[in-house]
C-alpha cells in the first residue's frame, strides 16, 4: 500500500514495536535493492497472520509484491515463490505465534534446504491480534487471558532452536534500534541461504517488555537485552552456541555460515542440469 488507502483500516497500537521494524525493513530493502540494482517489483513480502503479518500492507514506500496467506505457512509459501523464480528477493514477515507456534514445523526443513530467503520474526511474547493469549515465547507462569492461573509450559528459546536446526544466518535485534536492525536485515538479505532476523518487538497493549529488555537504572532493573561483545565471530559455531546458551537477549549477528549451497543452487546442480525429454518421447516410452 503506497498511498493512504481509505478502505484499509488496520492500525498498530501506539508504541507497537512493529513500527520500528517497518522502518528498519524499509531502509534495509531500499539499500539492498539499490546495491543489487533490482527494481522494487523483484521483491515479494510473504506475510503470516497476526499483527506482524499486516506489515505487508503497512509498507509506505514503493510497493513490492506481497502475499498475505494463512496462519503459520509463510515459509512454505515463500519456498514455492523462490523455487518458482530464484531471481526474486523473498522476505517473510511473521510473529512469534505464527513462526514458532502454528508454523514451527516449517523452520527445520527450510534450514536443511538452506532456502535463500530472509525471515523477519517479530517477537512480542503474546498473541496480540486475538487479544492477549500466551505464545510460545511467553514466560513460564505468566498470567494471560488464556493462562488465567499461569502458563504451564516453559518458553521456547528461538535462537537456540534456529542454531540447532541449521539456520545459516541468525541475527537478534530489538525494534527501537532501527539503525542496527536495518543493517542486520541488509546483511540477512545479502546472505546466501536461509536467514532469520529475530526482533524483540514489544506489544504495548498485552505484554510491554520495553522496560524488562532495556532495564531501568531508576527502578534497579537489569536489562535483559545486551550487545554481543565485539570480537564475537559469527562463523564460529561453538561461539554462537555459547551466545544462545547464555541468559538474556543477545543483540547482534550470532551465526553466519556461507559455506553451504542455497536450495536453488542445489536444484540447479541436481535436476536443473538434466535435460528434460520432450513430451512426445515420454509418451513413446509407453508405446506397444
Amino acid at each position: 500500500m503506497t498511498l493512504k488507502n481509505p478502505e484499509y483500516d488496520f492500525k498498530w497500537c501506539p508504541g507497537c514495536g512493529d513500527f520500528g521494524v517497518r522502518r528498519g525493513l524499509e531502509n534495509a530493502l531500499e539499500k539492498y535493492l539499490a546495491e543489487t540494482e533490482q527494481p522494487t517489483e523483484n521483491t515479494v513480502v510473504v506475510a503470516g497472520i497476526g499483527c506482524s503479518g499486516n506489515m505487508v500492507h503497512m509498507l509506505e514506500k514503493e510497493q513490492p509484491f506481497g502475499i498475505h496467506g494463512i496462519h503459520g505457512r509463510s515459509l512454505p509459501i515463500s519456498m514455492g515463490i523462490k523455487m518458482g523464480n530464484p531471481d526474486l528477493n523473498v522476505i517473510v514477515v511473521a510473529g512469534d505465534g505464527d513462526f514458532l507456534g502454528i508454523g514451527a514445523e516449517h523452520i527445520a526443513p527450510q534450514a536443511m534446504r538452506n532456502l535463500n530467503i530472509t525471515a523477519v520474526v517479530m517477537d512480542n511474547g503474546v498473541y496480540g491480534l486475538t487479544k492477549g493469549q500466551s505464545s510460545p515465547t511467553t514466560d513460564l507462569g505468566v498470567i494471560t487471558s488464556s493462562t488465567p492461573y499461569g502458563k504451564m509450559e516453559e518458553k521456547v528459546h528461538p535462537l537456540r532452536n534456529y542454531l540447532t536446526m541449521g539456520v545459516s544466518f541468525i541475527g537478534s535485534t530489538i525494534s527501537n534500534k532501527v539503525k542496527d536492525m536495518s543493517d542486520m536485515m541488509y546483511e540477512a538479505m545479502s546472505h546466501p541461504g536461509f536467514s532469520i532476523v529475530h526482533v524483540q518487538s514489544p506489544c504495548t497493549e498485552y505484554n510491554n517488555t520495553y522496560e524488562a529488555l532495556k532495564g531501568s537504572v531508576k527502578k534497579g532493573i537489569e536489562p535483559l537485552a545486551y550487545d554481543i561483545p565485539e570480537g564475537h565471530d559469527p562463523s564460529d559455531a561453538e561461539a554462537a552456541q555459547e551466545v544462545v546458551n547464555a541468559d538474556g537477549i543477545p543483540l547482534g549477528v550470532i551465526f553466519r555460515d556461507t559455506s553451504r549451497p542455497t536450495f536453488d543452487q542445489r536444484v540447479k546442480d541436481t535436476t536443473g542440469s538434466k535435460e528434460m525429454k520432450s513430451v512426445e518421447s515420454l509418451i513413446e516410452g509407453f508405446s506397444i
Partner: peptide, 19 residues
C-alpha cells in the same frame, strides 16, 4: 515435501510466482 500442508502452500507460492 514434509507434509501436505507444505505441498499445497508451496504450490500456492509457485502459482503466485507465475508457474
Amino acid at each position: 515435501s514434509t507434509s501436505e500442508i507444505e505441498s499445497i502452500t508451496s504450490i500456492v507460492g509457485a502459482g503466485f510466482a507465475g508457474k
